[in-house]
Design a binder for these strands. Structure first.
Lengths: 342, 342
DNA sequence: CGTAAGATTTACATCGTTGGAACAGCGTTG
DNA sequence: CAACGCTGTTCCAACGATGTAAATCTTACG
């Protein structure tokens, strides 16, 4: 692997001159530049990034930390983030926390500090206090939960109002017994709490009572959890006729349970989700859901991080105000609540 | 951010001694060690990885290159790879090629050479000649296609025999008009070619004729492609009564088309896929598929890479023999071919 | 008590790049 | 023609860690 030194030798100039050419420094005589470029090409020179990073104090890498990549929502998000990052010249390192608090905390405490220039983080297990206790100075952008006035940049859809709208949609169809799947009593799970709050608001707005019995908590947010929760709900003496699941995977699991018990969706039970993962667009029936603009979230996250990294570099840790950004979402009404005709 | 120098100063020893402690060098007096460890802790020292990498000539990062992360198969694979890598102390950088040949070629030519110690690569667009023309010296492990005697380590299931078995399964159910979805005429797409070959073998073994009409090519391997291809097949004067889709996404799209035309699966049309993505376990009906052992593939890939990286470090480019590893798979028969009772 | 064999610690060079400042060439200007 | 201001190039130090070899300190032994 050729180094600047090799190229310099071959071109008959100093190492710094080669460096200047590589970095597009203006004051290089065109003759010299040509010579150097030739040598560069002949030796197929590529800068040693470790050395460059050491010198420049940055790595060109950002980390994306998510609970698990195989949850379609995070896979889709990761795709968008990697794409947005690539457009700005960043490489992306992925960390999976499995939603384990200890692992999430590690990240905040800077396990990756030396390896990346910034972190885009979608936490599920930690809370505001963990964030406040953070010592790591790496620029950080949080995704997915709405923690107002947090000490960090933050992007999220308004979970609560989206949940409220979805519940209103179900109520608007005439449903009076509307269940919810995905409540979480663990601390930290802000998303679940917000969606539950929205659900309650939606019920209240429709003049419906809140019935604890219709709210099924789940240990996680995978299909199996939704399927299981739905089984519990259907086993009630008076099961719900509509269910709002706190994400699409839960909804798909729920769907499966309903259908496999010989019931029809939405005629017997209407099902709605949250996230708009691709599966829901091809399930039978297709899934009514809340669709956050993932590309937008990803793009904004990378931009935010980008500015913050630049800022950190220019001003010495000049704490620019933290931005709370609300990402747009849409309610997508599909077959699982209104049927084929709808 | 504290450096070795700061720690050394604080502990009143030389930089090298601190380095020795950090690296667990044996000959450090216990008193010294304690002093140093104290200072280390007090300053919350973390090694500067750029510097360490520069010195040691490795990065601690491997890259995983896949077409697109939001295809569940690759998301699940990525999850397993990241996990397996983490267990061996590697970080994982992800590249998405979108199946674009130019991007895949770039990787072979070493865009990441300076950033990672090794590459796990699931190519779709490039061929054997591209591999042969490779100049980059970074250890490489290929996933997913079976290119025998390639110049690289390689892990894959036996696509052809798996496809043959699946076709045999369909024929065994009494089907005589068995379609295939996902043929590709682009060069390089070894996977499609192998699965098609297996399909033909399966037909032949069952004494069935190969009917070009029943083979639907698709531009890509997403749900929409499967849905569209299925529409074409169903529009035939005599549509197939069973369809083998070359991956699960195609199958799920096909499923959707069949069901939305008011037909039943498997009674009117049986559908089978390939990959065993989680969606297929929760679709209605659940999807019969070929299940490659992804965890095993990922683990093996990381191990292979690991040994090759070590080898490259020890022996100077000593070309250890390239290994072709066949990953196990199972045929999972579910509702989409045999119905609920099955 | 001198000395050799360890044990422990240190000094120094080095990995490949880049920032900063010094240096050299050279056409202008006063 | 000396001083000046450009342009173009080079030299040197530094980023932070580690390998090498040498320096220093113990300990055991004759």
């Amino acid at each position: 692997m050729a180094s600047l030194k090799d190229v310099a030798q071959r071109a008959g100039v100093s190492v710094k001159t080669v460096s200047n050419v590589v970095n597009g420094y203006a004051y290089v005589a065109s003759g010299t530049r040509e010579k150097v470029e030739l040598a560069l090409a002949e030796l197929d020179y590529r800068p040693n990034l470790s050395a460059r990073n050491l010198r420049r104090g940055r790595t060109g890498v950002i980390a994306l930390a998510v609970p698990e990549l195989d949850a379609p929502y995070f896979a889709e998000l990761a795709r968008s983030v990697i794409k947005a990052a690539a457009e700005r010249g960043w490489m992306v390192l992925i960390d999976q926390t499995d939603g384990v608090a200890a692992r999430e905390r590690e990240l905040l405490q800077g396990v990756r500090e030396q390896s990346v220039d910034g972190l885009i983080f979608s936490p599920v297990a930690i809370g505001r206090d963990d964030l406040a206790a953070r010592t790591d100075a790496t620029p950080l952008v949080l995704l997915g939960e709405r923690v107002l006035d947090g000490p960090t940049d933050h992007i999220a859809v308004d979970n609560q109002s989206a949940a409220r709208e979805m519940t209103a949609h179900l109520a608007g169809l005439g449903h009076t017994r509307i269940g919810a799947i995905g409540a979480q009593h663990r601390p930290g799970m802000g998303t679940a709490r917000l969606r539950l709050a929205g659900y309650r608001e939606g019920l209240a707005a429709a003049g419906l009572p809140y019935d604890e019995e219709l709210v099924a908590p789940t240990p996680a947010y995978r299909r199996a959890d939704g399927a299981e929760a739905m089984r519990r709900l259907l086993a009630l003496p008076e099961p719900p006729r509509a269910v709002f699941c706190f994400n699409d995977l839960l909804a798909l699991g729920a769907l499966r349970t309903v259908l496999s018990q010989g019931l029809r969706v939405p005629e017997d039970v209407a099902v709605a989700g949250f996230d708009d993962i691709e599966d829901g667009r091809y399930s039978t029936p297709t899934l009514t859901t809340v669709s956050p603009d993932k590309d937008r979230v990803a793009k904004t996250a990378v931009e935010l991080l980008d500015t913050r990294i630049d800022a950190g570099r220019r001003a010495g840790r000049g704490a620019a105000a933290c931005r709370e950004i609300e990402a747009p979402y849409r309610l997508l009404v599909r077959e699982s609540t209104v049927g084929r005709a709808g």
